[in-house]
């Protein structure tokens, strides 16, 4: 696929999503970046800011299958992956695919499920396949998991373990829209807007875009820049656990995808700097020495970035 053609399709996707998610071009960019880097997205925010709408809109913009799983504490792994049932007519056992078998899967309130069910997602996210009863089933391509969680609710939740968090490319917050956009949202009819959303991409288009993202060039000094940021998180005095090599690899791929999303076939430092917080923040564990004025892992990453020289 030609670069201009690819970028044109990205622009179309952005425009389409902009119709349902108003006033949040940054979030849309990040969602597309996650999609192009073959990643998964964790959306962490309070209810009612459009987490589900984003997932829904993304699925509808691509002519692909979409499944939504509402996670609850009694949800079982088989409810996600699928179950083997006996077919009386054929006298055989056959596998009934679960909701995970879709191009885009929305795992709503993922932290409400038990760790057992959460871990069922692990293999699906990493290897894009599921195993049940000694058989392995490949998931459709492209496959992207969008998970949401409410950061304020703690009772009856099971916080995601580090291993699972590490598998999400990014953790983003949507945040409240500004006043003008909120007025607009109030007066619009959300269901009809979603209904009017037409697919602009095919699954083949998405695969082509993902391949194009992999070809975006990253200058050697920028690789060192990523390395410097990662090392800084490992050496920071307020961070107990720095980022893993998986995280630096993810940032590298995400930076490529972000460059493509921004219409460039090469990375610039801004790609890396912009993505550092969404990619790294949920992977670090702060300790009790967090300085005053810094709240949350995101601003800790900002603090890290302020100490790393940008290669020019």
């Amino acid at each position: 696929m030609e670069f201009t053609e690819t970028y044109g399709k990205i622009e179309a996707l952005k425009g389409n999503l902009g119709k349902v998610i108003r006033g949040k071009p940054g979030v849309i960019d990040l969602a597309i970046t996650a999609l192009l880097s073959k990643g998964h997205l964790l959306i962490e925010d309070v209810p009612g800011v459009g987490k589900t709408t984003l997932a829904h809109g993304l699925a509808r913009s691509i002519s692909c299958s979409f499944q939504r799983i509402q996670f609850t504490s009694d949800l079982l792994p088989s409810d996600v992956i699928g179950v083997t049932v006996y077919n009386q007519a054929l006298n055989t056992f056959e596998f009934r695919q679960g909701p995970i078998f879709a191009n885009i899967v929305l795992a709503d309130e993922i932290n409400r499920a038990t760790p057992k069910t959460q871990s069922a997602l692990l293999e699906a996210m990493n290897d894009r396949q599921v195993s049940a009863d000694r058989a392995t089933y490949t998931l459709p391509s492209p496959f992207m998991l969008l998970a949401t969680q409410n950061p304020l609710e703690f009772s009856g939740t099971f916080p995601l373990p580090e291993s699972q968090l590490d598998r999400f490319t990014m953790c983003v917050r949507i945040g409240y829209p500004d006043e003008a956009h909120e007025k607009e949202i109030m007066q619009s009819d959300p269901s009809s807007a979603m209904q009017d959303l037409l697919p602009v991409l095919t699954t083949a288009d998405v695969e082509g875009m993902q391949a194009a993202a992999g070809k975006v060039s990253v200058e050697e000094d920028l690789v060192s820049y990523i390395m410097a940021i990662a090392s800084a998180t490992r050496a920071h005095r307020a961070i107990r656990l720095g980022v893993s090599p998986r995280a630096t690899m993810t940032l590298y791929k995400a930076a490529q995808a972000h460059a493509l999303t921004s219409g460039r076939n090469y990375c610039i430092p801004d790609d890396i700097k912009r993505l550092s917080a969404p990619v790294f923040a949920h992977r670090i564990i702060p300790n009790e020495r967090v300085p005053e004025g810094i709240e949350g892992p995101s601003s800790l990453i900002e603090d890290v970035l302020s100490g790393v020289a940008v290669p020019v």
Partner: peptide, 30 residues
Amino acid sequence: DETPLEFAERTKSREVAMVTAAFQSQRYGG
């Protein structure tokens, strides 16, 4: 710790933005 683009935005100058764009494509785009 400021990227060239961030710096260009801080200067709010059209000329700086222009030079920065040319610089970026040469320096990082090759």
